[in-house]
């Protein structure tokens, strides 16, 4: 068992940064993606569906451990430019806000993804999650 605190609703602090993850858009991971989506085969281009993978992967890594069974309720993607195959990205995860609506506990995470080489922002996102009770 992990000694780290569990990311329950009460544990999230709006404004707090929970970490930064690194993700390299290498040919191996793109090939895995294409095994699920064979149509996403534009040469040299990262499939846009993988943007969600970058954001969700960063949130799941930085906000762990979590109670099992949370549900993804909504997502915003603001693409400044599509990541390139071969590029390494750094994604910061921050708690944007949280609220209880009709006894459901919602948390929004703001993600900012930058090129590791240049620091240029390539993507921001807001992931809305219904936190498991």
């Amino acid at each position: 068992m992990s000694d780290k605190p569990l990311f329950t609703y009460d544990y999230y602090e709006p404004g707090k940064v929970y970490g930064v993850t690194e993700f390299t858009v290498d040919e191996t991971v793109v090939a895995k993606w294409r095994s699920v989506y064979p149509g996403d085969n534009d040469p040299g281009v990262m499939p846009a569906g993988m943007l969600a993978m970058i954001i969700v992967g960063a949130v799941l890594t930085c906000n762990a451990p979590r109670p099992p069974g949370g549900v993804h309720g909504g997502q915003t993607f603001d693409v400044r430019r599509m990541p390139r195959i071969g590029e390494t990205l750094l994604t910061e995860v921050k708690c944007l806000d949280k609220e209880i609506k009709k006894e459901r506990k919602w948390v929004r995470a703001l993600t900012t993804t930058r090129s590791k080489d240049t620091g240029e922002i390539v993507l921001t996102g807001i992931m809305t999650t219904l936190v498991a009770q």
């Binding site: 846009a48 997502q75 993607f77 400044r80």
Partner: peptide
């Protein structure tokens, strides 16, 4: 949705998309 956008508007258009969705 990303595929529909790309297949209609072209891959370059994806560089300037703001997508907001609810499940």
């Amino acid at each position: 949705i990303w595929q529909a956008l790309k297949n209609t508007l072209g891959v370059a258009a994806l560089n300037r998309v703001h997508l907001e969705i609810r499940f």
